[in-house]
Simulated scan of single mutants.
Amino acid sequence: MRYELIIFDNDGVLVDSEPLSNTMLAAYLTELGHPTSYEESLRDYMGAAMHRVHDTILERSGKRLPDDFDDIFHERVFAAFERELQPMTGAMELLEQLTADGVPYCLASSGSHQRIRVGHRKTGLNKWFDEGRIFSSQDVGRGKPAPDLFLHAAARMGVAPDKCLVIEDSPLGVQAANAAGMDVYGFTAMTPAERLHAATRLFRHLSELRGLLADTTDK
């Protein structure tokens, strides 16, 4: 099967943000009286929109997070991004190759538009993504694992879901892609392969993905 659109997740696929953001999230939740380790944050929230954090804490503790939780969390994450964020190894080369080959691609992230833009400006990825190629969970009613975000991105790009290939590194993202009726390649650089077992296929390095996509996309 040949794909007409590549839909990238952002965090952990194009930018190396998951260690930074989950370190911050675990520390902030613990500070607020909800003890959370880094590993637990990755397990429960990696790839999710912020509403999942709120819903999970309320379900487990019966308590709501503060009204300013998102604002304070994002302030801390953005500061960490400005200090330390890097693109994923091979991301620039992959996007350059797709652009040169004329392969349509876009981004569909659980993160906010602001989070995406802050990260892209810091890493230089903004060169590859204009506004028409960026879709956020803010744009739809439900974030991953619901299929809404991926279906929204496909519709805006004018491509049928079964002609799309999603690149994901989280179980929630893989679940969302499957629910959208899209093939999905699971990126195992940070996530154990067994947690992405529902993906169409797995890969460990973005350089490997370049070869895989060259064989499966219409040019």
Rank of each mutant, 00 (worst) to 15 (best):
M1G: 13
R2F: 13
Y3P: 06
Y3G: 01
Y3V: 01
E4R: 15
L5C: 07
L5F: 11
I6H: 08
I6K: 06
I7V: 15
I7A: 05
I7D: 09
N10A: 04
N10R: 03
N10T: 01
N10G: 00
D11F: 12
D11I: 03
D11S: 10
D11K: 10
G12R: 07
V13Q: 08
V13D: 05
V13T: 02
L14P: 12
L14D: 05
L14K: 09
V15N: 07
D16T: 07
S17Y: 07
E18G: 07
E18V: 03
P19R: 06
P19L: 05
T23L: 13
T23H: 14
T23Y: 11
M24N: 11
M24E: 15
L25F: 10
A26L: 04
A26S: 11
Y28E: 09
Y28T: 00
Y28R: 14
L29E: 04
L29Y: 07
T30W: 11
T30E: 11
G33E: 13
G33P: 12
G33R: 10
H34Y: 15
H34G: 00
P35I: 06
T36Y: 12
T36L: 09
T36P: 04
S37R: 08
S37F: 06
Y38D: 09
Y38Q: 08
Y38P: 00
E39A: 14
E40W: 13
S41A: 14
L42C: 09
R43A: 10
Y45C: 01
Y45K: 02
Y45N: 01
M46T: 12
M46V: 04
G47N: 06
G47L: 04
M50D: 14
H51R: 14
R52D: 06
V53N: 07
